[in-house]
């Protein structure tokens, strides 16, 4: 029951497009010579989608996310976010970014960490308070406002960092292996919460991971990438319903998609050397 979408149709021009990449490439100049981190990436991400990027390290999945966020500059091709250049999108605060680590400021309480982007934007105090409360509710961290990061577990810290990314209400959420450092039990729990949050807020989410079950469980679309040079080898449209209990992961449908992802990774020779 898998629907294969080749890249040509996946990159159709669309009014709903949030991220559009065309022949995107990025070559890092290193001391050991140039390294092609991204090569000929064509991808359109539509509003409301949950897109996972999966692949071995060095496949450029994080680099692609950083290009969207204007943290890296592409050397070839074009990319637009909401029809703007990445820089304009960043200046318009078009996205929230969640890093691999929670990256909370240790000298700020949870609420003032979540309020950091709001302070920087310069929202009125009352609205800051209101948004902090709302986003902390959303990630189930009410009651921890006055705590400092070290007083929270790793999973709670990462939830606080998600709240921080949600606080200024951008439609696009970029997440770079946000649960990579957490144990599996916590990760399952946060995956469930993230799905709920995505359904509630109707945001577009780009999610980098190296876990096949996580990618299949969360995504509406899975982008399989392979290294040297970093490129897209397969784009898999998920047939799972929007409502996904954790035990959907034992269903044949789920396993079929996971098998296809695994095949895609293997086809990219990603397990060689």
């Amino acid at each position: 029951m898998l629907m294969t979408v080749n890249q040509a149709t996946a990159t159709r021009v669309d009014q709903n497009a949030v991220v559009e990449a065309r022949q995107l490439g990025l070559t890092f100049q290193t001391n050991d010579g140039p390294v092609r981190a991204l090569s000929d990436v064509n991808l359109t991400i539509n509003k409301g989608e949950f897109v996972s990027f999966i692949g071995p390290s060095g496949c450029g999945k994080t680099t692609f996310l950083r290009v969207i966020a204007d943290l890296e500059q592409p050397t070839e091709g074009k990319i637009s976010i909401n029809g703007m250049s990445p820089e304009q999108a960043r200046e318009a605060r078009a996205y929230g970014y969640v890093f691999q680590a929670a990256a909370l400021f240790p000298w700020r309480t949870i609420e003032s960490n979540v309020g950091l982007p709001l302070e920087i934007i310069g929202l009125p105090k009352a609205e800051q308070q209101e948004r902090i409360k709302r986003t902390l509710d959303l990630v189930n961290l009410s009651g921890f406002e006055k705590k400092y990061p070290w007083q929270l577990s790793g999973g709670m810290q990462q939830r606080a960092s998600i709240a921080r990314a949600l606080a200024f209400d951008a439609d696009l959420l970029l997440m770079d292996e946000p649960f990579g450092a957490l144990d599996e039990i916590v990760r399952d729990h946060l995956n469930e919460q993230l799905l709920r949050l995505w359904r509630q807020t109707n945001k577009t989410i780009c999610f980098v991971t190296h876990s096949i079950p996580e990618a299949v469980y969360l995504s509406t679309r899975i982008v399989v990438m392979s290294p040297r040079p970093g490129r897209v080898t397969d784009v898999i449209e998920s047939t799972l319903p929007k409502e996904r209990p954790l035990d959907i992961r034992e269903s044949p449908e789920f396993l079929a998609i996971a098998a296809r992802v695994r095949d895609g990774l293997r086809a990219g020779h990603s397990y060689e050397d």
């Binding site: 960043r90 605060r93 990256a103 400021f105 302070e119």
Partner: peptide, 22 residues
């Protein structure tokens, strides 16, 4: 660390905001 600086960059924070807040 670089992650905190990147974070401020994604917020489009000015140099003085990065200085005082980070």
């Amino acid at each position: 660390d670089l992650m905190h600086l990147d974070l401020m960059h994604t917020y489009n924070a000015s140099a003085s905001q990065t200085f005082w807040k980070l």
